[in-house]
Design a protein around this nucleic acid. Structure first.
Length: 278
DNA sequence: AAGCCTACCTGTTGGC
DNA sequence: TGCCAACAGGTAGGCT
């Protein structure tokens, strides 16, 4: 589920109905996710108006003026907006956290509980970006600053394979296991190639493919934005047609050779041995 | 300092 | 059908 496109689609989906509304209650049903849930959150939030929702990497930042509520979806998290009436119904098993607004409820579900809910008080943290979790984040891949020249320079000295390097959020944010494999396929680069050995010319092919892969996924999710307001379980995630991800043994959509799998940094990598070269 | 490993959790899948 | 191991889209933190 949540790589950068899913988080961005989530941001847009919940922003439309919620921005400008005031919080009327906070419900936490578990003591912690990745981190302990903030204490005294209701005192901070009730009566405050949601001013804006921004995204940094895979983090969502809900701006309440007095501070930001930071949300991360981990590996299995999802957010939905329920009509207020539906929120009165009992929460499902993994619905851990609700933010009740006038008229709507924002509900966080996260079976594996790798997600995060943190309160970044404007008093303690004058600049959100200065928060330790955000300060270490790398470049935004959809920003203009993310260029072949930048990536080439940033990967000098990185002997590790390009695929796990692309997934390093301290370098570039938002590229998870799916879109790392997909982008490298589209750029024709073998995922095992040491990052430092890739020429700027080849990065000039990779960077636009990363952008296109992420942008197309956001566009695909955009068509399901309405699903974020729903009382049933259907969240706004979407089925995509992948070139290589999850297609071990199936024919490459370009050359017909079987897609191969390998493990890099304990994660599955999918690639075509013919279309992708070192 | 890069790069590897582990840990945090629960649900699903595939083999026997 | 049941049992068990392996695996799942993230990432901080600890170690070498």
């Amino acid at each position: 589920m949540p790589e950068l496109p899913e988080v961005e689609v989530t941001r847009r989906g919940i922003a439309a109905p919620l921005i400008g509304r005031r919080v009327c209650a906070v419900v936490a049903r578990v003591p912690r996710l990745r981190y302990p849930l903030p204490a005294g959150l209701a005192e901070q939030l009730v009566g405050r108006r949601l001013l804006d929702i921004r995204r940094r990497g895979k983090y969502l930042l809900l701006d309440f003026g007095a501070g930001h509520l930071l949300l991360h979806l981990g590996m299995s998290g999802s957010l939905r907006v329920l009509p207020q009436a539906a929120s009165v119904a009992p929460a499902q098993k993994h619905d851990h956290f609700d933010l009740l607004f006038d008229g709507y409820t924002l509900r966080l579900r996260d079976p594996r509980r790798f997600g995060a809910v943190l309160w970044l008080s404007a008093h303690d943290v004058p600049s959100v970006e200065a928060h330790p979790l955000l300060a270490v984040l790398g470049i935004e891949p959809l920003s203009e600053a993310f260029t072949a020249a930048w990536l080439h320079a940033a990967t000098r000295g990185r002997q590790a394979a390009i695929k796990p390097v692309l997934m390093d959020s301290h370098l570039v944010v938002g590229i998870g296991n799916i879109y790392a494999s997909e982008s490298l396929f589209r750029a024709g680069i073998d995922p095992r190639t040491p990052a430092a050995r890739i020429s700027q010319r080849r990065y000039a092919r990779l960077v636009p493919e990363i952008r296109a892969t992420l942008s197309e996924a956001i566009a695909a999710g955009g068509s399901s934005l309405r699903d974020f307001i729903h009382s049933d379980g259907s969240s706004g995630y979407f089925q995509q047609q992948y070139f290589v991800y999850g297609r071990t043994g199936e024919p490459c959509r370009v050359c017909g050779q079987p897609i191969r799998t390998l493990r890099q940094a304990q994660r599955a990598t999918f690639y075509c041995g013919y279309c992708q070269r070192r």
